[in-house]
Simulated scan of single mutants.
Amino acid sequence: MAANENVQKVLDWTVAEVGVPGIVAEVKDGDRTWFGTAGVADLETGSPRVPGEHIHTGSSGKAFTAAVLLSLEAEGRLSLDDAVNAHLPGVLDVNGYDGDKITVRHLLSNTSGLFPTGLAPEVSYRYATRSGFDQHRFDTFSTEELLRIAVSQPPVGAPGERFEYANGGFYIAGALIEKVTGNSYADEVERRVARPLGLAHTRVRPTTDTGYPAPHPHGYTQQFLKDGTDPATVTPENWQSLMEEPGLPLMDATVLNSSLGYAAGNVVSTTSDMIRFLNALTTGELLPPDQHRQMWTTVSTEGSYWMPHTNYGLGLFEFDRRATGGRTLRGVGGSFWGTYFFAVGTPDGEHTVAVHTNTEWRSWDPMFKIIEAEFGVSITA
């Protein structure tokens, strides 16, 4: 397929020009599938990337969290318009937040007014520099600690006022799932998402895990602040200017504890499983019609520092059709140290591409170039 040849060219370009160690793309187009790679899975041995690798999917895990809560709503166990205080009284009633006004829907749509969690000093002082990351890579975060971090800084807006990407909202959503069901977040993801969809290689990563099942790529990171930068001075507006200069060596981040992700993004999966997952969400296979509609009722991300040209649903995104020439494309995606993943497809589930790099995203260019190569859609302003 000519389109896949064009995707392969983008994969090669991403390794040669963007500096990504290794990248894979898996395409499902009707009954046809295609798998392409470029670069390596391991810089030391030079081993290639292969199909079926276990990968950290980053904030794609938010869509799993949203799917579980929508499933619970369909059963009448809760409503997305419930105030958080109805289930977790007092958790949000600090630092200017109001748990009677912030709803479950606000949490899942990133419109709660919670501040960007990655800027919390408890996080940035541990991981913002190379030395800090190496010292703290095995730190384990409890749910209680994550809930404290979620509200450790004042609000950035009123509930429902605007989109602001906040992992903390999904920490609270995970705790809410556990409170309502009496089961662990991981068990509910397995019972309500992974098992019904036959995702045999997908699970929430246990807090005790620091590695991955075979096969898996090594993950490499350069996501650090410049030496001498005080993390307390970092804002959503200036963080890019404070990052390390290009050209410094990559750090192997394969072995680490990822409990910081929790219900905001700590799912390990494969590209095949994630295509299956996204297609079930886009077509309405997993959820009843009302919950499916709510999942894809979006808010604009314009003016935020998240992915450009998108609208955000509940844990997932849809490209703004003004930027795609009227074409509807939906997706999930996310990043963690040493990993970036996205899957994008058509609403009918017939045509989907899943991509993983074994380092964090350097720019949006590879993603947009892959989408143009596979779908013939140029993402424009």
Rank of each mutant, 00 (worst) to 15 (best):
R195E: 12
H54T: 04
S335I: 12
G52T: 02
Y171T: 03
S378V: 08
Q291T: 00
T140M: 09
E26G: 07
H356N: 13
A166Y: 00
A214P: 00
F375A: 09
V353F: 06
V180S: 02
V355D: 08
W34M: 05
T346V: 01
A66K: 05
A41L: 08
L278S: 04
E190L: 13
E164H: 13
V299G: 09
R32C: 02
V40T: 14
F319D: 03
P308Q: 02
D42R: 06
S152H: 07
N110H: 15
S112W: 00
H292P: 02
F170N: 06
A186Q: 07
Q135I: 11
P116W: 04
R205G: 02
T254C: 11
T37L: 02
Y305N: 12
L281Q: 07
V355F: 11
S269D: 00
E372M: 01
L92V: 06
V156Q: 13
I23V: 15
S269V: 09
T45L: 07
L176D: 08
P288G: 04
P347I: 03
L199M: 01
R191I: 02
E145N: 04
F224H: 08
L72S: 00
T357C: 09
Y165W: 10
A67C: 07
L281C: 05
L147Y: 05
T270H: 11
A38S: 15
T301W: 05
V24G: 08
D139V: 04
F342A: 05
E372V: 00
Q153P: 02
T57L: 12
A2F: 06
P51W: 02
D365V: 13
P289N: 04
G46Q: 10
K28H: 13
S258A: 14
N85M: 09
L248I: 14
F141C: 00
P155E: 12
T208I: 14
L69N: 06
G333V: 00
V377S: 08
E350S: 12
S363N: 09
G349M: 05
K9F: 04
A63Q: 01
G219W: 08
